[in-house]
């Protein structure tokens, strides 16, 4: 009698399982006891005001910051205890990081093609023609004219630089992408283009994404789930639209109500 609801048969192993993640700066809490699971193909947003610990959390996940306590289990392995070579290999193959400022994630004195090709070459690609072809393909995918493959990122606009940074990270077909305010500092129209692009890439590549932002509009359009942070702790998490439309925590209500109407 029951309809078999295939959409509800879900992969039940998380791609990433974070528990008890804690990082302090002396007496001040960076983030404390953060717990969450991220499943394949899921996009999780983290919002909170400056100093809420969202960036600290992301930096800990990415290994840019040392963690005081907790686990970050990726495909059954705690990446925090991985030997450094293995961790760095993971970061340049299976994971990608998108910085708020493209110049932090790009090599500004290297051509667009070289930027996109770097992870391939780091992985042992030794055929110039193939590397270049892959780079061209990726420039096209992020809507950059492949004819500009030999231009340096410094000749690109802010939005193009950001798209190039995304191509550089996604070229190895990662499973997990960590993004720190990827649309911050871009014009509204450029933001929209980037959001659309990200949505398409997430869908086509089945990416799992953790995206940190203070822009509620961005998470509403991009994130399946949302985590609200304050003073280093997660105060509320759940389905993005439920957290935003029916916020339970006092702080979330304040945050949602502080958004200027568009």
């Amino acid at each position: 009698m029951n309809v078999v609801n295939t959409a509800l048969v879900l992969e039940d192993t998380p791609l990433l399982s974070v528990s008890g993640l804690t990082r302090s700066y002396g007496a001040r809490i960076g983030c404390k006891d953060v717990v969450f699971d991220l499943y394949p193909g899921e996009v999780m947003g983290i919002v909170g005001e400056s100093g809420s610990g969202k960036s600290t959390l992301l930096s800990c996940l990415a290994g840019h910051l040392e963690t005081d306590a907790g686990q970050v289990v990726y495909q059954g392995q705690d990446v925090l205890t991985l030997p450094e070579p293995a961790r760095r290999r993971l970061m340049r193959t299976d994971w990608a990081f998108v910085h708020q400022h493209a110049r932090d994630g790009l090599r500004m004195n290297v051509s667009a093609g070289g930027n996109v090709g770097e992870r391939l070459m780091a992985g042992g690609a030794r055929h110039y023609g193939n590397i270049r072809k892959t780079a061209e393909d990726w420039l096209e995918r992020v809507e950059i004219d492949p004819g500009r493959i030999d231009d340096r990122p410094s000749a690109f606009s802010g939005g193009m630089q950001q798209r190039l940074q995304i191509a550089r990270g996604l070229v190895t077909g990662p499973k997990l992408v960590l993004m720190d305010e990827p649309t911050g500092g871009l014009d509204v129209s450029v933001q929209a283009r980037l959001l659309d692009l990200l949505r398409g890439l997430v869908r086509r590549m089945g990416l799992s994404v953790v995206i940190v932002t203070h822009d509620i509009g961005v998470v509403r359009l991009l994130a399946d789930r949302l985590m609200v942070m304050r003073h280093g702790q997660v105060v509320e998490q759940g389905l993005t639209d439920r957290v935003l439309d029916d916020p339970q925590h006092a702080y979330t209500q304040l945050l949602v109500n502080s958004v200027l109407p568009t």
């Binding site: 309809v3 609801n5 399946d224």
Partner: peptide, 30 residues
């Protein structure tokens, strides 16, 4: 979209009052 304070909301067999975000997303997808 809203979380109930109490009771049961079953849609196609899934109780939205207790479902995980992922289950709700999947339900909405198909």
């Amino acid at each position: 979209n809203y979380a109930p304070a109490g009771g049961v909301i079953e849609v196609a067999g899934l109780d939205l009052a207790t479902a995980t975000p992922r289950q709700v997303s999947a339900l909405r997808r198909g």
